[in-house]
């Protein structure tokens, strides 16, 4: 699909908007529909579009596989880490109220952090799955 001019130009304009929207969904998910799961999937679909239009190689140059593997594990670790920190600060596992002096403020910090963890993991796992599948198509 390397020679489709219209597709390339449209994708170039569309991809930044999709990524911006993914960040909006991620960090505004407390007040409007959205959250980590949706943001991760939208973020990965931006890169999916990029690799469909510009080829797999250039997409892998932007986000190499080993980074994605590290990111996928980091998201889960961030999630579980918030729970452990809550334990260390005197609460139960994943009891965010212990994270700050005010319970509601602690809840807010905890929710934003774990949504970030969910977003990172879901986004990188979806991209990893797509790259692994797409590499199977190339040879032969």
């Amino acid at each position: 699909m390397q020679d489709k001019l219209i597709l390339r130009v449209v994708a170039k304009w569309l991809i930044p908007v999709i990524i911006l929207f993914a960040f909006y969904v991620q960090f505004h998910g407390d007040y409007s529909p959205g959250g980590g799961f949706q943001a991760g999937v939208i973020f990965s679909s931006a890169f999916l579009l990029y690799s469909l239009v510009y080829g797999l190689e250039s997409a892998i140059k932007v986000l190499p596989d080993h980074w994605l593997k590290v990111a996928a594990c980091f998201g889960v670790l961030l999630y579980a880490g918030v729970g452990v920190v809550a334990m260390l600060m005197g609460g139960n596992f994943l009891d965010y109220s212990a994270l700050a002096s005010e319970p509601v403020a602690g809840q807010h910090i905890g929710i934003i952090l774990i949504e970030l963890g969910v977003g990172i993991t879901v986004g990188s796992v979806m991209l990893l799955i797509f790259f692994t599948f797409a590499r199977r198509v190339l040879p032969k």
Binding site: D30, Y31, G35, L94, Y96, Q107, H108, I111, V118
Partner: peptide, 27 residues
């Protein structure tokens, strides 16, 4: 929780364990 979106509140806070499990399944 201080979060107006109840879906996020339940997902992340009340059912935090559940979501941790789901994320682990995705990984």
């Amino acid at each position: 929780t201080g979060v107006p979106n109840l879906v996020t509140a339940v997902l992340a806070s009340y059912r935090g364990f559940d979501t941790l499990g789901e994320v682990t399944v995705v990984l």
